[in-house]
């Protein structure tokens, strides 16, 4: 009996979590009679289906496609550069011995815990003074140095076999060699997990493009969908489905690595 209730509870949770996604997909194919900007659904489950939302979004309004490719560009470039920056940083925090290391790491974590809204204004002022506002660099540069990946990688590196690194130190004194030949191969599951986290984070960003970018041509899809005005319910929902697909595919590809990575990071 207890088993039945547990299963029923889990099923209810699954339905509650999946319902918005299912409704989004269903209504993106629904015939909507409502006017643009009036965001309500005529019924919970649509009665008639067509492809008007997708047609309007992909064929009639080509701007959304450029916004999609902007999203792909930002998410990929930021994620790759962030990992490139984070791996040496994490190696230093984990293996190097220097004064104030603990204090520096503490401040690093504090920076990570800060809400995004706190750093938006200083970033805005910095970007404005560097004349980078309204360019893709205003989105890419601040995100490349985000501390979250370095924190995760540090946690993972702390768990690496010390003896292995000590043996490597007997062979060579080059940090680059140890990092590339010994540490990086062991970091693979963690890097994949970080890649997924970081990609999802950048894919979903809304505040930064809305504040740093004015030109529509540079905005990512997340920003386009959050705009109020000019879009019908079907268009917004069709855009949401398109927005969901890359993240779902990414998870399908790397979910094994993600689980291994999270387990090894003890998260």
């Amino acid at each position: 009996m207890g088993n039945f209730f547990r299963k029923a509870g889990l099923l209810l949770c699954a339905v509650l979590f999946l319902l918005p996604v299912v409704l989004t997909v269903l209504h993106s194919f629904a015939v909507q009679k409502v006017e643009p900007d009036l965001f309500y659904l005529e019924s919970l489950f649509p009665k008639k289906f067509d492809l008007t939302g997708y047609y309007d979004l992909l064929v009639e309004d080509s701007q959304v496609l450029w916004n999609f490719w902007n999203s792909v560009l930002y998410a990929l470039v930021i994620t790759v550069l962030n990992i490139l920056v984070s791996v040496p940083a994490a190696y230093s925090f984990s293996q190097a011995k220097f004064r104030w290391k603990e204090a520096l790491f503490f401040f690093y974590i504090v920076l990570m815990m800060m809400p995004l809204q706190v750093t938006l204004l200083p970033n805005y002022i910095g970007l404005r003074d560097m004349k980078l506002l309204d360019t893709p660099y205003s989105i890419i540069l601040p995100a490349v140095f985000a501390p979250f990946s370095a924190f995760l990688l540090t946690q993972y590196m702390n768990g690496l076999e010390k003896s292995c690194l000590e043996a490597a130190l007997l062979e060579t004194k080059s940090v680059t060699t140890i990092l590339t030949r010994i540490v990086l191969p062991q970091l693979r599951p963690c890097i994949l997990a970080v890649f997924i986290f970081e990609f999802a984070e950048q894919w979903n960003m809304v505040e930064q493009p809305n504040i740093y970018l004015k030109a529509e041509k540079w905005k990512p899809l997340s920003s386009f969908l959050s705009m109020d005005g000019g879009l019908t319910v079907s268009e917004v929902l069709a855009g949401s489905v398109i927005f969901m697909i890359p993240i779902v595919v990414l998870y399908l590809y790397f979910h094994d690595s993600l689980e291994v990575g999270l387990e090894s990071m003890k998260l």
Binding site: L58, V59, S62, L65, W66, F68, W69, I242, I245, P246, V248, V249, L252, Y253
Partner: peptide, 19 residues
């Protein structure tokens, strides 16, 4: 995931260039 990615990216590219 392979199939979804291929079909999705192909459609997006086609719409981008031929929309």
């Amino acid at each position: 995931a392979d199939i979804i990615l291929y079909v999705f990216l192909t459609f997006m590219l086609v719409f981008t260039f031929f929309g």
